[in-house]
Write a protein that binds this DNA or RNA. Structure first.
Length: 645
DNA sequence: GGATTTTCACAGTT
DNA sequence: CAACTGTGAAAATC
């Protein structure tokens, strides 16, 4: 999307000389607008409508007038804001700078955690760019880059926490490590943060409206918002050529009592003046981020808006959702609820963007509780699984009259031929009190569990052994994840673009189990008959090995080896999903998918017949379509196409 | 909820 | 004046 066409961005070389907004250039020293005198004259909180408030207003107006009359004629062409009309994918703006230092080893995690280890890290760039007119292939390229960066962040975060658990077990309880902070620090140290040598105004390539994040540091890592805690990110005045700061993004998360958020319109409170309990105890000043927002309004620079809100099921009870671009239309100085002066900014969402992520979240909540109330038309069934899954599977079609999924038997798990179960019987662990790291099943997984304590996949493997019916451990064992079935409310829906599709009403955390790709396993002879009949089958061996990317730390640890064991025989079976199936076969195909296949064994030990388990490769927001790379060598592998088109 | 972290802007030196 | 250094926020997190 070309936001230049949506937004009147001042043409820096051809500013109207008669414009009152851009007066004739004046050479002025760096402006230091401060309301400090006010703080001395008005030391105590004022009642809301008290006369002294007038002084604040007039002082603010005076300062504003000062600005508009002393700013040089717009921003210099070589200055704070410059357009980058067609960014090449290989632009340094978006690619991490290669680091000449050798990568540390896996065992160096502890060393990396030591603060102040001496190395100088480059500061953020001051160069402002706007990226527009991305071609479809560029979008895919950046999407992939962002996904890989986020996967690395998440893998590192989980890895750090798992390592820390082990250490704490060995050394006794102490404080829990902040995995998010350490993951970000390691990546910064490796120069793996994105978008650090350019400041991007507007959307970040590869980040979609609606994308969900759990940690502030993750926003820093991809360059969506560069402040670890502060809500306003901006290019500082010291780095800007004309001495004026420019805001690039804000986070709206309810930390200021004077905020008013109605979705498309936000009244945002500037920062500052709070004590460390979040109480407003001083007047705010027109400086730093506050000034940057004011200047962004003046130059009509759009800002990214990220909303933070509580979300149950998130690792920290919170989620941050990217809601797209807003323009600042008004600013004023006001007396807040506390009685202290605060700056306010009115922001309006720019038109022609896809629906806001946070409102989709809200809609999904109402769908979960009252589906028919929120969407009276289109539901064919409120449980396609007929109570076979722990959560109902909605079936929605407001496109055409096709109800065919209703006529299939719902299959929760894959049906294997009986002889599959004859291999390696009774091959389980004896951990009656719960499995620990030295458990027999952990050994089969290379001496570690595949999942963390929250059931998130730590790293992909050729094959994962879960504890099963032959083990003595309780059902609550951490090594039983996929066998417990789906954990989200899914919906099969009809789409004009992709035929059938699947989406979730819950936010799915990256690395979470989604569902099994269930079908009826065919013997070679059966498969031949099916093929002759023209039925299309699912070939498990042809799914792309995206599990190799998950948890792969080779980008940060030089001695990292991708798990090769257990080596599995080539998969030589096919699955029929024509009569019995679950939701998985409705997943759309994509070469840039958000779901991957991981092979898992739990109810038998036959390496040749694993379950095909689907895991999320990224945080998947509610109502976003799930997609899988079917590795389409030829059309016959497209399980979805086999039944849906 | 207090303690612990991190990053960044800013200002002051060298 | 560029580079370094110290300080103080800051809508974070457990």
């Amino acid at each position: 999307m070309d936001f230049n066409s949506l937004l009147p961005f001042p043409d820096l070389n051809h500013l109207p000389s008669s414009s009152s907004t851009f007066p004739a250039p004046l050479i002025v020293p760096k402006i230091e607008p401060k309301l400090e005198p006010l703080d001395e004259t008005l030391p105590s909180p004022m009642p809301l409508a008290a006369p002294p408030g007038l002084d604040l207003f007039s002082e603010y107006n005076r300062l504003c007038g000062l600005f508009h009359s002393t700013i040089p004629g717009g921003i210099q062409p070589n200055g704070a804001v410059s357009a980058l009309p067609n960014s090449h994918p290989d632009s340094l703006a978006l690619v991490p700078v290669p680091d000449p230092n050798p990568s540390p080893n896996l065992s160096d995690v502890v060393v990396l955690s030591a603060p102040g280890s001496g190395r100088k890290l480059p500061n953020r760039s001051a160069e402002l760019v706007r990226i527009t007119d991305l071609k479809a292939e560029d979008e895919l390229y950046f999407r992939d880059k962002v996904r890989k960066t986020r996967m690395l962040f998440e893998s590192l975060r989980v890895f750090v926490i798992v390592e820390d658990e082990k250490r704490r077990d060995a050394m006794g309880a102490n404080r829990r490590t902040r995995g998010d902070l350490k993951a970000a620090a390691i990546m910064r140290e490796r120069a793996l943060w994105m978008n650090r040598d350019k400041r991007i105004v507007g959307s970040i390539p590869g980040v979609l409206v609606g994308d969900a994040f759990f940690f502030r540091m993750e926003l820093c890592v991809i360059g969506l918002h560069g402040q670890a805690q502060a809500g306003i990110d901006y290019v500082p005045s010291s780095q800007s050529s004309n001495g004026e700061p420019i805001a690039t993004s804000i986070i709206v998360s309810g930390g200021y009592e004077d905020d008013e958020d109605s979705g498309d319109v936000i009244v945002y409170t500037g920062h500052g003046g709070q004590d460390n309990h979040g109480r407003q105890v001083m007047h705010q000043k027109l400086e730093c981020g506050n000034l940057a927002l004011e200047r962004s309004m003046h130059y009509e620079v759009e800002v990214r808006v990220i909303r933070g809100f509580k979300y149950e099921g998130s690792p920290n009870g919170k989620v941050y959702v990217y809601d797209g671009l807003y323009k600042i239309v008004d600013t004023w100085f006001d007396v807040g609820k506390s009685g202290f002066g605060v700056f306010k900014f009115k922001l309006i969402r720019i038109e022609n963007q896809v629906e806001m992520g946070s409102s989709i979240f809200k809609f999904a909540v109402s769908l979960r509780t009252q589906p028919l109330g929120a969407r009276p038309r289109g539901y064919i069934s409120l449980d396609l699984s007929k109570k076979k899954e722990k959560f109902p599977v909605f079936f929605f079609n407001d496109v055409d009259m096709d109800h065919s999924p209703m006529y299939c038997d719902y299959l929760v798990t894959t049906v294997f031929p009986p002889y599959v179960y004859n291999v390696g019987r009774g091959n389980g662990c004896n951990c009656a009190g719960g499995c620990l790291d030295d458990c027999f099943c952990a050994m089969k997984n290379g001496g570690e569990f595949a999942y963390d304590l929250q059931g998130i996949l730590v790293r992909g493997k050729p094959l994962i052994f879960e504890c099963g019916p032959h083990c003595s451990c309780p059902p609550t064992c951490r090594n039983r994840v996929t066998q417990k079935g789906v954990r989200n409310r899914f919906e099969v829906f009809r789409s004009k673009e992709t035929g059938w599709g699947v989406r979730s009403l819950d936010l799915i955390q990256a690395g979470s189990f989604i569902c099994e790709f269930a079908g009826v396993v065919l013997t070679r002879e059966q498969a031949q008959i099916f093929t002759m009949n023209g039925d299309r089958l699912v070939y498990p061996s042809r799914f792309t090995g995206n599990w190799k990317q998950w948890g792969n730390l080779s980008a940060v640890f030089s001695d990292y080896v991708c798990p090769e064991s257990p080596s599995t025989p080539p998969l030589d079976f096919t699955m029929d999903v024509s009569r019995m199936r679950n939701i998985a076969c409705y997943l759309s195909h994509s070469t840039s998918p958000n779901v991957m296949v991981q092979f898992v064994l739990y109810d038998h030990n036959n390496l040749s017949f694993p379950h095909l388990m689907l895991f999320a490769m990224e945080n998947i927001p509610p109502l976003r379509e799930l997609s899988l790379d079917y590795g389409v060598a030829d059309e016959s592998n497209m399980g979805k196409l086999a039944i849906c088109n």
